[in-house]
Each structure stands twice: as C-alpha cells, then as structure tokens.
Amino acid sequence: MPMDNPRISIFTGHFGSGKTEIAINFAINCKKYYNKVAIVDLDIVNPYFRTKDASRILESQGIKVIAPLFANTNVDIPALPAEILSLFHDKDYIAIFDVGGDEIGATALGRYHRYFLNEGYQMFLVINTKRPLTKDTESILSMFEGIKKNSRLEISGLINNTNLSYDSTVEDLIEGQKIIDDVSRQTMVPTRYITGKEKILSGMPEYMKKKAFPINLYLQMPWQ
C-alpha cells in the first residue's frame, strides 16, 4: 500500500462480491507498514460470513477489530458501536471499513459522512462479474450509482474480484476485466486492484499484473 494513500479505506460492492475477504487481506497488508491498523465490520445486512469471523486471526496480528455488538450472535440487531468514532479522532490509525452489500449496505456509511469528508478517504467498489446481478456494464453501473447515492461518497477505485470460488480460473478475471474496463471508461474511475489467489493472478497478462493484489481466504466453511 503506497504511503500517499488516505488513511481511511472503504470497501463497498454487491453482496457476495468478496468485500470482506479483500478488506481482511488489505488490513493484514497495511499492518506490514503501519503500527495502528483497525478494521470495521460495518455490515448491517449479512447475518453470516463476515469480518467478525476472522477476528481471531486479525487480532493475533495486532489489528483492531470493531464489529457490531451482536454480530455473529443469535440476534439480528445491526447496532453500530460508538467505538467506530474513535478511529476518526485518533489520526494514527489506518482504518478499513468493510461495508454491507449493495446500496442498502452502503447506507450505513451516511452516519459517518462528515468524518469521511474531514479526514479524507478512498472508496472501492468490489466487482465479481460472475455474480448474476453484476454480470455486465449496465448492472455494474446501476450498483455503482446506487452505492454512490446512498453513501453520499465518491467511488475512487474499482476492484476486479471476478471468481467462481473453488472453480476460479484466470480466464474469469480476464473476461471480467473487459467488462470492468468498460465501466471505467464510462465512470472515469480506474481499476485499482485485481484480486485472487496468487496462483491464479500469476497467469494474468502483464498489463493486469501491475494491479495484482493476491489474497488468502480467511472465511472457511466448517467442512474445509
């Protein structure tokens, strides 16, 4: 992560696009360069498979995890903890926000709108073109606009996370990039990262490799 990045990074996208895995990897990567790193589970939509699931790994690496009080419990109360505000005041923190899916999930960002404007931020849109509701330029643009509108923030970078879980191939990423390049042309927002397992990313053409951000998967199924 280059040193001139804003200290706040926000990950948004369609639900199931891979925001959480990328945010976790991003936090772990930031920890290599910075002393104080925090990740916020801002997901008020999804009941399972969330940042909180990886809290043990994150905390063991010295990353602060702030999650809704009742995340992963048996109640469905998406109350956001007051502790989130501390990250705006303590300017030594690198803060990563893992936001809930779709424009509905992005609504939660509105609560912190003025803090994001004061502190500066970068906001990413995570895209997996193998998800049926973000499979083409038109549907991605609709997601893009919806998230922008509900968060009242600007999307500064696209992330190509096109994958089919355990059936992923480099071809999926290349095919996805064509669609995402089209989205870039129309929105003037560049692709910042291309994410996937290192083995898959290594097969990409050179122009894509420059943006490669290899990730490890931290959210596992109980039979894995």
Binding site: G16, K130, R131, P132, K135, N163, L164, S165, D167
Partner: peptide, 16 residues
C-alpha cells in the same frame, strides 16, 4: 444461463 455463476444458496433457489 448455462455458464457457471457464483451465487448464494438463497438466490440460487429463487432463480431455479
């Protein structure tokens, strides 16, 4: 839709 896509169980049931 014969190509492979990535879906949540709930979405997949609905589409099916």
């Amino acid at each position: 839709m014969s190509e492979k896509v990535l879906m949540k169980g709930n979405e997949a049931v609905a589409e099916a």
